[in-house]
Every structure is written in structure tokens, then in C-alpha cells.
Design a protein around this nucleic acid. Structure first.
Length: 193
DNA sequence: GACCAGATTGTCT
DNA sequence: GACAATCTGGTCA
């Protein structure tokens, strides 16, 4: 079943943890793409120097102060897009960066989009997952409880129990000591150990 | 495996 | 005008 709005209307770190094991679904014209979320990072907002909303809301970050559960997509390093889910409390500027997914359905389509064959390398990084899942800027601000891009709750598929590892975030220069990165222990599809 | 440089452009100062 | 929540492909081991 799809995740509903109250799921996102909680503290950012809680949402980041609970997203692990959930399934990201994108219904495209070419077919349905599903990836299991195996790695996330929490960006807290005004209290977190590494968050894009730390220095106030701009045209780029405006979706972060709308009601939670929207997609926040940004462009970086001149060539990469990253995909986030906004969280509560509303107005705080919190978001969860989806760092890696495990390809579940539409794997052949993902291989074609990424132009590689190695499944473990299809979506094990924020910019890779955006390409593999066919996400683009037209989905900026999209409500993630609605088609064509939405999230299925953890118990939608039968899956084994897993342990959550906390770690430091990747690729940032501010507040880098905080343990706000979460991933599924032992999963081969995370971006790095 | 680890480490490093280059790509390339939107966004903010 | 500086920098960035990254990836890829190179080198060296």
C-alpha cells in the first residue's frame, strides 16, 4: 500500500529511518520502475548547516516549506541531479536525501537508462538513482503520495528483517560529524561502506 | 582496493 | 565569481 501524508509529517530523522526498506515506484510510459530504498540521509533544515534550507528559503528550496511528502530535486556539480523527500514539521525545511535503491522491477529499463549491465551499480548513489528511476525536474514539488511517482510502505513486499546502520553524511563540508546517514546493514546496493 | 582530477552549470554572495 | 548533498575514469598498488 502507498505511504500517506502523515508518514512524512514526522521528525526528519524518523522519516529517514522509516524510508529504509520502502519501495520507490515510478510509473513511466515505458514501464513501471521499482527500487527498494536502502540508503538515506537526513537534512534537518534551519538547525543543520549542511541543509540547503539552512540559509533561508530561496526559489530553489521553496518546496521544503510546503506540506511534507513532496519531492525536492536539485542540480549540483554541473551535471548531477539528486532526489529528496520533504518532511515535517512544515516550515522547518527538513528533507531526506535518497542515496541508493536496490533495483526490484523494471531492471532492464534501468540498465538501458544507465547504459550499464551491472545491477549493483545501477542506483547505488543519489545521482545514479535519479537516472535509473527516470526522475527529472518536472517532478520537482510532486506529491509523493500520488502517481506517477510514489512510495510503497515497507510491509508491501515480504522481506527479511534488517538492521539499520548510522553513519556520517557523504560529500558535505558543514556539520559533517553528525550521524544522519542511515543504511541497511549488509545490503550490497548501498553507495559506500 | 585507495586515491585523485576533471567535468560543467545552477544558485547564491 | 566561487562553489557544490557527485560520478567516472584514470593511476598506483
Amino acid at each position: 500500500m502507498t505511504v500517506s501524508q502523515p508518514f512524512f509529517d514526522r521528525e526528519t530523522t524518523v522519516v529517514a529511518r522509516d524510508l529504509l526498506g520502502c519501495h520507490l515506484v515510478h510509473e513511466t510510459l515505458e514501464g513501471v520502475l521499482i527500487g527498494k530504498i536502502v540508503e538515506t540521509e537526513a537534512y534537518l533544515g534551519a538547525s543543520d548547516a549542511a541543509s540547503h534550507s539552512f540559509r533561508g528559503i530561496t526559489n530553489r528550496t521553496r518546496v521544503m516549506v510546503e506540506p511534507p511528502g513532496k519531492s525536492y530535486i536539485y542540480f549540483t556539480y554541473g551535471m548531477h541531479y539528486c532526489f529528496n523527500v520533504t518532511t515535517a514539521p512544515q516550515g522547518a525545511g527538513g528533507a531526506v536525501l535518497i542515496r541508493a535503491v536496490e533495483p526490484i522491477e523494471g531492471v532492464e529499463l534501468m540498465k538501458a537508462r544507465r547504459n550499464i549491465l551491472d545491477e549493483k551499480n545501477l542506483a547505488n548513489g543519489p545521482a545514479k538513482l535519479v537516472v535509473a528511476m527516470g526522475i527529472s525536474m518536472d517532478l520537482y514539488g510532486h506529491d509523493l503520495t500520488q502517481k506517477p511517482l510514489y512510495i510503497l510502505s515497507r510491509d508491501h513486499f515480504n522481506q527479511p528483517e534488517f538492521e539499520i546502520i548510522e553513519s556520517t553524511r557523504v560529500g558535505i563540508s558543514q556539520a559533517k560529524e553528525l550521524l544522519l546517514r542511515f543504511y541497511i546493514k549488509g545490503n550490497p546496493f548501498i553507495s559506500r561502506k
